[in-house]
Design a protein around this nucleic acid. Structure first.
Lengths: 198, 198
DNA sequence: GAGGCGTACTGAACAGCGGTCAATAGCGCT
DNA sequence: AGCGCTATTGACCGCTGTTCAGTACGCCTC
């Protein structure tokens, strides 16, 4: 049962991570066993432990990679108008979720329901997705959106992130009744509407 | 290693479910192993299979029980004013999450990140928590809240549920900056604010 | 209160999976 | 060509879910 092929550590690690992300779209995290991964990659179980200290470490690396892909592929436009930038960001997110439905659904479910480290990655990623919308904004822009930097607003922006994720995933599963454009304006307007009134 | 105690099926099943719910507060679902459960209950591993066909079945039953507890313990008041009823419902929910922090956090994370059946229980439960706020409402009440029964509104109410869960859990973990009353009015007002404008 | 019966309960045995480690063999380098 | 480094293997261990044939507890009857 030989035909060993000896790769450089980088190439092998890359192959395993990429394969892991692909497999995550169809299996759950627990079903992503060392056995299954090793067989699919054509290597022995033991080799995985040459690259990842433990199975949880491997899962972490896979989720981290997948999360980074999401952030990278949904970058907002550089438009100066904060509302336009917000809209473009939401549109990019909806587009991504639409085309990567299985993978993204699995990613969210596994990361949010996993151990502490996985949830930390999940939280960080979602924070990054919302924060960057405002990072590039000037103080006047923030005022234009009705945003103030206080605890209540920060909490509700966080909650808006949860809302968008939930609503978009539900819409992708069953796009009943409303079009994509309606969905996008709906959740975008929601952000302004749900903020605490000064 | 005897000292067998023979209980009625109902009593034993009840004991196992209750113990499962209690243990879920400190362990994750995977860590809630048959071994641990059996040892804690003072029974053999085999007995669990007398009451539950498989480990997943047991986990399902535990989550179902815990979810039912949440719904039961957060029942809204019978106030005729829909806005008052909404407020009381949100307050009951916040109170519950506050006093059952560990258990509820675990429940949400495990159920939302579990298999299809577990997620179905989770979705059904969250739908029940939001739906009942409006079930008792008359058509005029709904208009008073700005609610119309269309696809967009249903989608956003669903999203509001996700927002409340996320925000309340975040606040309970770190109640930085805002009081409980502020939190309650914040998320309650958010529902009205985030709905699509006619 | 003795015996019998249904079934709640046990414990040994098996399979599958995560994890370890000494042995092996592919590839670059001289 | 051959040598050394290390990527790679495969056999092994322990733990966990699951099965099942057997055991003994408690109720019921006399």
């Amino acid at each position: 049962m030989s035909a060993r092929t000896r790769l450089t550590p980088e190439a092998r690690r890359e192959q395993l991570l990429e394969l892991g992300v692909r497999m995550l779209a169809t299996r759950s995290l627990e079903e992503l066993s060392i056995d299954a991964l090793a067989e699919e990659a054509g290597i022995s179980r033991g080799l995985l432990y040459h690259y990842f200290r433990t199975k949880a470490d491997f899962h972490e690396a896979v989720v981290e990679r997948a999360a980074a892909d999401v952030v990278r592929l949904t970058a907002p436009s550089g438009d100066p108008d904060p509302l336009v930038r917000l809209l473009s960001s939401v549109r990019a997110y909806v587009d991504y979720v639409e085309t990567n439905q299985a993978g993204y659904t699995s990613l969210v479910q596994r990361a949010a329901g996993g151990n502490d480290r996985l949830r930390e990655i999940y939280e960080t990623t979602r924070a990054a997705l919302t924060d960057r919308i405002f990072d590039a904004a000037s103080p006047e822009d923030l005022v234009a959106l009705g945003l103030v930097d206080d605890a209540a607003t920060r909490l509700m922006v966080r909650g808006w992130g949860a809302l968008v994720e939930d609503v978009v995933l539900a819409w992708v599963r069953a796009p009943a009744g409303i079009s994509k454009d309606e969905l996008i304006t709906l959740v975008t307007n929601a952000l302004v509407g749900l903020l605490p009134r000064p």
